[in-house]
Simulated assay, not measured.
Amino acid sequence: MDRTKSGIWATPPEISRFSGIDLESVLRIIYNSYEFMQCAYRSEDGLPLFTTRKVYKERTPSWNKLLRALKHTNV
Results as ranks from 00 to 15, higher is better:
1 M>G: 13
1 M>T: 14
2 D>F: 06
4 T>K: 02
5 K>G: 02
5 K>F: 06
6 S>Q: 13
6 S>Y: 12
7 G>S: 08
8 I>V: 15
9 W>C: 05
10 A>Y: 00
10 A>Q: 02
10 A>H: 02
11 T>S: 00
13 P>E: 01
13 P>Y: 01
14 E>R: 00
14 E>A: 01
15 I>K: 01
15 I>H: 00
16 S>I: 03
19 S>D: 09
19 S>R: 14
20 G>I: 04
21 I>C: 09
23 L>C: 04
24 E>V: 12
25 S>T: 15
25 S>F: 08
26 V>T: 07
27 L>R: 15
29 I>D: 11
29 I>L: 14
29 I>K: 15
29 I>P: 06
30 I>L: 12
30 I>M: 07
30 I>H: 06
31 Y>W: 13
32 N>R: 15
32 N>V: 08
33 S>C: 10
33 S>D: 08
33 S>Q: 11
33 S>L: 12
37 M>R: 14
39 C>S: 15
39 C>Q: 07
39 C>K: 07
40 A>C: 05
40 A>L: 06
41 Y>N: 05
42 R>M: 02
44 E>Q: 10
44 E>M: 04
45 D>E: 15
45 D>N: 13
46 G>N: 03
47 L>A: 03
49 L>S: 03
50 F>S: 04
51 T>M: 12
52 T>S: 13
52 T>M: 08
54 K>D: 15
54 K>T: 15
55 V>W: 02
55 V>H: 07
57 K>G: 03
57 K>C: 04
58 E>Q: 14
59 R>C: 10
59 R>E: 11
60 T>Y: 03
60 T>C: 13
61 P>L: 09
61 P>G: 08
61 P>S: 08
61 P>W: 04
62 S>D: 04
63 W>E: 10
63 W>K: 11
64 N>H: 11
64 N>E: 14
65 K>S: 09
67 L>N: 10
69 A>D: 14
70 L>E: 10
71 K>T: 06
71 K>I: 05
71 K>G: 04
72 H>Y: 14
74 N>F: 05
75 V>G: 03
